[in-house]
Amino acid sequence: MYFTLLIVVILTAIALVAVAMGIARAISPRSYNPQKGEAYECGIPTRGKSWMQFKVGYYLFAILFLMFDVETIFLFPWAVVVQDLGIYGLVSVIFFLVVLALGLAYAWKKGALEWK
């Protein structure tokens, strides 16, 4: 039953966007003009290709996010049963979190968290 409802929700989302865009394309005016097809860069003509090279900072933050997100995923099942595990659960997860916190501290110290 869950799966059916999930499919219904996904189809609703697609239908909502399709209906909105359909109505918009049906009743909106259309006029072709080469100036309108240009990208908007504060009014000046574009220089060079628009797909430029990225800053490496984005990549570093993405890797850090990946690590911590996987950590969060692992913590979810533990969080559900921690009340039954008692102190044993607390101590074992402290080891896990300490290892990851050391990773964050290392990244902080090495300057990976600065934007430049």
């Binding site: 394309r25 009743i27 909106s28 006029s31 309108k36």
Partner: peptide
């Protein structure tokens, strides 16, 4: 108003 605005697609 938003529905009746023109949908401008850029060329590239």
């Amino acid at each position: 108003k938003m529905l009746i605005k023109e949908i401008i697609t850029i060329r590239h």
